[in-house]
């Protein structure tokens, strides 16, 4: 990417932001598969609109299309922010249909799911380069955060000059290690939460309002 293209993109984003204050910001929920992105998207959507965004599952790649919930209005400290939540498929560099066979799936279904999953990841990458104004990066805090996908994704998000919050999810689980997540990405703010149990959502909404308002 040339310097001029970089500069043009930066200026274009800054101008877009200046003149689009009235429009809701599109906040992409990104992260590896099974980090709890849809559970978080549903939690936020249910808390502020009453509706869900999409089905949740323990099987990886349940979300295979980016789904947008528009005009979610979050109120914090007398201030309100309006965002569009974009729940994206989990990002990975590999998809093997045999992984789905372990979840009692027939081969045809597994192959179809893997094909849809690959399309979903490609779509998620496209959204990240073109169509989001900020990112919530969700990690399972019981997993090692020092993975290549996490390192690359955070690098890509930073290169786009997008505001980003790291959410260390699944703090309700015994093996959760929020500090390990915070240590992996010290340049960004890490917020612990359990999207499933609704733990620490006050701080979550406070940070969303602060970063994306």
């Amino acid at each position: 990417m040339g310097l001029l293209t970089d500069l043009r993109n930066s200026i274009s984003r800054a101008v877009d932001r200046m003149f689009s204050d009235a429009d809701p910001k599109r906040i992409g929920i990104y992260g590896p598969p099974n980090a709890g992105k849809t559970t978080l998207a549903n939690r936020i959507a249910r808390d502020w609109t009453g509706d869900a965004v999409g089905p949740e599952s323990h099987i990886p790649h349940e979300t295979r299309r980016a789904r947008r919930k528009e005009n979610v209005e979050i109120e914090r400290d007398g201030k309100s922010v309006r965002i569009d939540i974009v729940d994206t498929p989990g990002v990975t560099t590999k998809v093997d249909y045999k992984e789905f066979l372990e979840h009692d799936m027939e081969k045809d279904d597994a192959v179809r799911r893997s094909r849809e999953a690959t399309e979903g990841v490609a779509e998620a990458m496209h959204w990240l380069r073109e169509d989001v104004d900020g990112v919530i990066y969700v990690l399972d805090s019981t997993d090692d955060p020092f993975t290549q996908v996490n390192t690359m994704l955070i690098g890509i998000i930073e290169s786009q000059d997008l505001p980003v919050l790291i959410f260390a999810n699944k703090t309700d689980l015994e093996d959760a290690n929020v500090q390990r997540v915070a240590n992996a990405f010290p340049q960004h703010e890490t917020v612990p939460l359990s999207a499933l149990e609704g733990n620490n959502m006050d701080e979550v909404y406070g940070k969303i309002a602060e970063y994306f308002g």
Binding site: T93, K94, M125, H126, S159
Partner: peptide, 24 residues
């Protein structure tokens, strides 16, 4: 980073069951 992003995207379009599972 931009090239990494496109590498992931192109890799995904080339994955094919029993033939190519993607990259490490």
């Amino acid at each position: 980073p931009d090239e990494e992003s496109k590498l992931i995207e192109v890799t995904m379009t080339e994955i094919s069951p029993d033939e190519f599972n993607g990259i490490e």
